[in-house]
Amino acid sequence: MRRLLGGLVLFIFFSQPLFAAKFDYGLNAKPVADNTYLFIGKKEDFNFQNGGNIVNSGFIITDEGVVVIDTGSSRRYGEQMLAEIRKQTNKPIFKVINTHHHPDHFLGNQAFKPAPIAALKGTVKGIKNSGDMFAENLYRMTGDWMRGTEAVVPDITLQPGIEEIGGHELEYIELSGHTGSDLAVFDRTTGVLFAGDLVFHNRTLTTPHAIPEKWFVALDKLAKLPFKVLIPGHGEPVSDLSAIEQTRDYLRWLVTTLENGANKGLSMNEVMQTEIPARFAGLALVKSELNRSVVHLYPGIEKKTLHKLN
């Protein structure tokens, strides 16, 4: 009965126009370099209040048109992003790029049609296979913010290498580690590096499709680029190596923690109780993301400690 009443109160609470009715993400294009703008998401998990505005997306205004890098978590996000872009320029959308196949990076694609949408081969495949399931999952996590959202699979397979667009020399770097297919976009003209979710900053990294050993390699490659500004997938941009170092430090601690736990015979719940070092206390969601990562990564690591008997 108490639960029923609680549900009633919640229902009334969420029915207030104050909350979700406007469905306004409050996007605000922040300039980070010449012709280059960024929408900085909250360092939170998906919920009914933020509607999925938890990710960084950006755009570059070139002489030939606008290059959009990631489109957010919903159709509404994409539409509001486009409206903000239109406050800066009337140039056409030259190209939309999805850095990887996670839902907060591509579910706004719809709003940019009929512009060409490009992603690495592995990302196109990932969106094709899992896009609808991701969208369904976000309906559950953010509710009506998702109304009308459908997964739009990129129509162009992006080739790694350099493309010159309207005075900007863009380098497409094919990496992996956060997922099986991660794109970094380095604008050699402005020195802005869009690192996608290979780099997190003051927000704990996520691992549902992570391949840690490849992720370390990707971070080493990114660290060698002569960038002036690095845009992480989540968290504030930086002009130094600190976000890369932080991502690497946490990932190394995570992998070591899981391996040590497996080597001691710990259960998943025991590993989840691991004390988190003080230097990671400032990472948003560190406790809940550790729990998630244990679920994602521990079974495989644990299996290596068991011996076949029959």
Binding site: K264, G265, K303, L306, L309, N310
Partner: peptide, 20 residues
């Protein structure tokens, strides 16, 4: 089907045993 994997750790008073 039916492959059995296991490992044992001596942890003081008990033997931590994992069986899959």
């Amino acid at each position: 089907l039916g492959e059995i994997y296991a490992a044992v750790w001596d942890t003081g008073t008990v033997r931590r045993t994992k069986i899959s």
